[in-house]
Design a protein around this nucleic acid. Structure first.
Lengths: 233, 233
DNA sequence: CAAACCAATCTGGTTAACCAATTTGAGTAA
DNA sequence: TTACTCAAATTGGTTAACCAGATTGGTTTG
């Protein structure tokens, strides 16, 4: 799911194998929504793997909402049908690690939306938090220091103000990888931080003024100056 | 059922507590990017909790890219600074479970994008898979059967064809919850399935013709007829 | 005969012991 | 002094034993 190192890839392999075996079992036994999976011990024995491996695989399927473990009771098949179950497991098995381009593409999409929603829904409390993040960012930049973190925190504050918990979560998921990649490629110490200050305040003002279209436009401008440095990554 | 929720919340609680303790420790000890966290055993002893609890908390922070465990070596702080670390942990602790409205809002946003990308990037193989999903859907509807699953699989096929692995992952994450909620509220057995067939084929044709704007427009139409049933949920 | 009950059993979760790879630092040789 | 060696200690991961609570099916009781 994240950037994995070799040792973990090996792990990933046997986990995927277990997941596909679970899928086969569900098909073979014609398990329907609500049915109970064999116990973890039984699965680990049948598959010839350790119980903790089975648990990890179940955890992953649980994360994607396909299974549901009840303590002292059993693991149950979620309320989606067999067709969707097979299709989704197939997709999960073939999931590749996200590349940088895909992350950036998604970030832009999410932020152009969250900034509009934030302009519509922001509370006074949201404004305060955004302003705090923004001032911390400005100070760092003016002191000539690196400010990627403060930058990202401002963007996360916008996501929070959007009032959409799903997008907020997604922003949290992709943010650290973006930070890492940025610092790897030294995107941010190229003197574009100073122009960034004004752009950020423009975005903030538009949100404060509750003008979604303006906010989106300012965010677009911001990304334009930002990602012109990224095309050669 | 209530008990199940309670126990899980309880679990969530102590996990969050551990996470905030880890944050405090990182602040107190001034741990910087790349530094090593105390060992799992030491943390479990210091916090007075079991080692597996500590491991779960670390796993969660690892999922969000804030920590990185190296086997037989230690757990290391990710390459984002202290400020971003504190901000992100704060956000993670306050993360709420996504509500239906937020899920739908996000799904629409994602799909209006993936359908455009799919129109630009789809391969012949993608077309074949989408067509298969679509035919399965049509048959079920014509047979008068429920076809939510096949519906969603078609949409997932579009996400795959978009060539953006991050969006693909996100679609996989929200899909099962959407299915469940849909079936809970009986969104789909209100006779809108038949109109859905044509709408789906329109989307498919636009993708095949590599016309992003048309594809987006058709998807918009599709959502319009779909979610007019959802406003009263 | 049906409903209430209870203990044997089965379950996921937890704990503790164990493993192999990695660090580390004192000792050694150049 | 410096570079190298190697074994002991430390680490995250793995395995197996254990726990408390849920399930279940036969028995009892009204």
């Amino acid at each position: 799911m994240k950037i994995e190192i070799l040792t973990r890839n090996e792990n990933q392999e046997i986990q995927n194998e277990i997941i596909s075996k679970i899928r086969d079992l569900m098909n073979y036994k014609n398990l329907e929504p609500g049915d109970k999976l064999p116990s973890e011990r039984m699965l680990s024995e049948k598959f010839g793997v350790s119980r903790s491996n089975v648990r990890e695989a179940i955890h992953k399927l649980e994360f994607y909402g396909l299974l549901k473990s009840k303590p002292q009771s059993g693991t149950f098949v979620a309320d989606i049908g067999q067709v969707a179950m097979n299709g989704m497991i197939e997709d999960i098995l073939r999931l590749e690690d996200p590349d940088f381009k895909s992350l950036v593409e998604t970030r832009i999409l999410l932020e152009l939306k969250t900034v509009r929603l934030a302009a519509q829904r922001r509370t006074e409390q949201d404004l305060i938090q955004m302003k705090m993040a923004l001032e911390a960012y400005s100070e760092k930049v003016k002191a000539g220091q690196d400010a990627v973190q403060e930058d990202l925190l401002f963007h996360l504050a916008i996501a929070k103000a959007s009032g959409n918990s799903t997008m907020n979560t997604f922003m949290l998921i992709i943010t650290p990888e973006i930070i890492t990649k940025f610092e790897e490629h030294h995107v941010c110490d190229k003197g574009l931080a100073f122009t960034g200050i004004q752009e950020h305040w423009d975005i903030f003002d538009a949100i404060k003024a509750q003008d979604p279209q303006l906010a989106k436009q300012k965010m677009k401008t911001h990304f334009k100056t930002l990602y012109q440095y990224c095309y050669n990554i």
